[in-house]
Amino acid sequence: MLLIACPWCGPRDETEFVNGGEAHIDRPTPAESVSDADWAAYLFFHDNPRGWLAERWVHAFGCRQWFNVERDTVTHEIRRVWRLGEPRA
């Protein structure tokens, strides 16, 4: 069971959080000039890496804040947590 350090509340069990998938996926705009392929890439085609992954979590049963986590998808080690708007590295 993961122990996730919410940047607002501190470390909590994973059961307080909801995972939101890969982080830093830009939503293409404006709608009128986004190709079908680019829209599909935004919706569906992500990295899904084996290893380090930057992902979004929300402290759903806590402060309800979204934030970013860098987690190894094999060992589940978490090496970094940062707030939205902060740079990735």
Binding site: V18, G20, R56, V58, A60, R64, Q65, W66, L84
Partner: peptide, 9 residues
Amino acid sequence: AWLEDWRQG
């Protein structure tokens, strides 16, 4: 949750 997600992100 949906509203918060889009507001924050």
